[in-house]
């Protein structure tokens, strides 16, 4: 890398203050997740996207969903557009795939709540 970075790790609420040097060495982390985050954030940042999808339930108007894996940050709004195109029918279970390989990211959109009726 051309420069060094001071980052806040977002992998958990600890919010460790990371330093990433030009050789991609990460310091300031409390766990291994911080090393991976630090390296990824300065090379190719990724995020988990969470949102909701319309559902025909009489208990809830929408069902919460997430990307099963972290996706490239620049794809967030493309993925949101896909999520907002679909609607679900009950029953839905945690982990049910609602969109496969969303926007070619290799990650599925999965339901994060059970809604039976």
């Amino acid at each position: 890398m051309e420069k060094e970075y001071d980052l806040i790790c977002i992998m958990c609420p600890n919010g460790c203050r990371l330093h990433v040097d030009k050789d991609l060495n990460v310091t300031g982390n409390k766990c291994l997740r911080g090393v991976n985050y630090g390296k990824a954030e300065v090379t190719h940042p990724t995020r988990i996207v969470t949102s909701t999808v319309k559902i025909d339930s009489h208990e809830l108007a929408v069902c919460p969903v997430k990307t099963k894996d972290p996706i490239p940050k620049e794809k967030i709004f493309d993925i949101m557009a896909e999520i907002n195109k679909i609607s679900l029918k009950c029953p839905v279970h945690i982990g049910d795939v609602v969109i496969q390989n969303v926007c070619g990211t290799g990650s599925d959109i999965v339901a994060t709540r059970e809604i039976l009726q």
Binding site: M11, C12, T50, S51
Partner: peptide, 16 residues
Amino acid sequence: VHNGFGLHEFKEELTG
């Protein structure tokens, strides 16, 4: 519906 829960209790990152 956001994530960031459970790292301590369940050792994995979960949504609410």
